[in-house]
Structure formats: C-alpha cells, structure tokens
C-alpha cells in the first residue's frame, strides 16, 4: 500500500539511531562521545540544503510554465527545509556550547546559515504580502532564484576562503579526517538519506493536504 521509499526511510532511521549509538567511533579529545552528533546535527544541514534545492527547482519550473501547483510545491519544500534549518541551528548551538565554549561563535558557516534562514524568512514575508495567487507565485519565485546564487557563494565559496572552526576548512584541515573513518561513514551517509527521506515524506503529505484544501475550496 505504501510506497517502498517510505519503508526504506523507516528502516534507515532505525538503523541511524541503533548503529549511531552502538558502533564504535574514533576517540577524539573535547568531542568525546559527542562526535555522534554528526549523525543527528550535520544531517539536518544536508536535509535542509536538499529541500531548499528542490524548492529552487520548482520555482524555476514555475517561472518557465506558470503552473500554480509548482509554486505550491516550492513553498512546501521551503517550509520543510526551514524546519530542518531550525533543528540544525538549535542542535548546533547546543553542540557548540559544549565543544567550542559558546552558543554562538563568529564562524563563516554559522553566518552563512543564518543569512540563508533570514532569506527564507524574507521569502515567507514576501509571500504573505502579495494579494493574489499568481502575483505571489511570480514574485516569490523571482526572489528565490535571484537570492540563491548569492547564498551559494556565501555557504560554499566564502568558507573556503577564510578560517572556520568547522572541520575541513581553512584554519584546521587536519580536523576533517574523522570524516574518513569508515565506521562513521557507514552510518553518516545512510543517516543523510534517512533524514532527507523523512523530510520528503512530510512534505508530500503537506502538499497533498494543500491540494485537497484547494480543491474543496473551489
């Protein structure tokens, strides 16, 4: 009855929780056991980026075809992406408090993510301010597509040019090597897929409810 990918999502989520806590991890100072947050915090960012990318794709689709269902999808994916963003931000702040010593450090990646979330907040405000459906769809799609490359420059290019506390960037390249640990990889990649599938599932339900809502209001 339910499609296969939902089952896959459930299995991978259970795998993430079980293997994430039971498989061995490299013993690193300061991080200690909190390195397991990699499966729960970092994956939030991956899920957020994937959802936001999908929302951009639907915005471009809307601009090329002017079909309102594409706009609806773009909005719903953006909402789920924002949800992951909030989860990632809060978990990240807690983790940062215990490893870097403060809830908020001046780090390029943190700033980039904060800016991306501000941009999405602006996107939702813009959606609320326009009065009719087609105008709202057109304006918000243009805004999203216009802002996206600048965000990418912020999130991907800028951190490579300046120092970051995050692994694998300018100031501390050696720190990135825990990513290469094979045990962690075995959980990390499935965890990304699991959380992303969960988000896609939630979004699909939201889209279906919205569609029902629109149809009954006709």
């Amino acid at each position: 009855m339910h499609s296969v990918w939902k089952i896959v999502c459930v299995l991978l989520l259970f795998y993430t929780v079980i293997a994430g806590f039971l498989l061995p991890v490299p013993a690193l100072p300061i991080l200690n056991e909190t390195i397991r947050n990699l499966y729960f915090h970092v994956t939030m960012w991956f899920a957020m980026i994937i959802h936001m990318a999908i929302s951009i794709i639907y915005s471009i689709k809307y601009l090329s075809g002017s079909q309102l269902r594409n706009d609806l999808k773009a909005e719903q994916y953006a909402i789920t992406g924002m949800m992951f963003g909030v989860a990632g931000l809060i978990t990240g702040m807690i983790w940062a408090k215990f490893t870097w010593g403060a809830f908020w450090v001046n780090d390029v990646k943190l700033n980039g993510v904060a800016a991306a979330m501000l941009m999405y907040a602006a996107y939702f405000i813009l959606r609320n301010s326009a009065d009719d459906d087609t105008k709202r769809a057109r304006l918000s799609a243009v805004y999203l597509v216009f802002a996206f490359p600048l965000m990418m420059a912020f999130i991907y290019i800028l951190p490579r040019m300046t120092d970051s506390l995050h692994p694998g960037n300018g100031g501390n390249p050696a720190f990135g090597k825990y990513d290469l640990d094979n045990h962690m990889r075995m959980v990390f990649y499935p965890a990304i897929i699991a959380w992303t599938l969960l988000g896609l599932w939630i979004t699909s339900i939201r889209i279906r409810i919205k569609n029902l809502w629109n149809e009954t209001n006709l």
Binding site: A115, A122, L150
Partner: peptide, 27 residues
C-alpha cells in the same frame, strides 16, 4: 523591482534586501 510589485515599498526593501546583501557586504 520586486518590492515595488509587492507593495509596502520601504519596509519590504529592507526585509528582502538585507539577507541577499549580507554575503556581498562581507566580501
């Protein structure tokens, strides 16, 4: 251009503009 189409010009300008300007300004 976007803000002028959306109405509420002056406040929209700041709300929409600042997040997009941030990466540029940092550079």
């Amino acid at each position: 251009a976007i803000a002028s189409r959306a109405g509420h010009q002056s406040s929209m300008m700041a709300i929409l503009g600042f997040p997009v300007l941030l990466p540029l300004l940092i550079i």
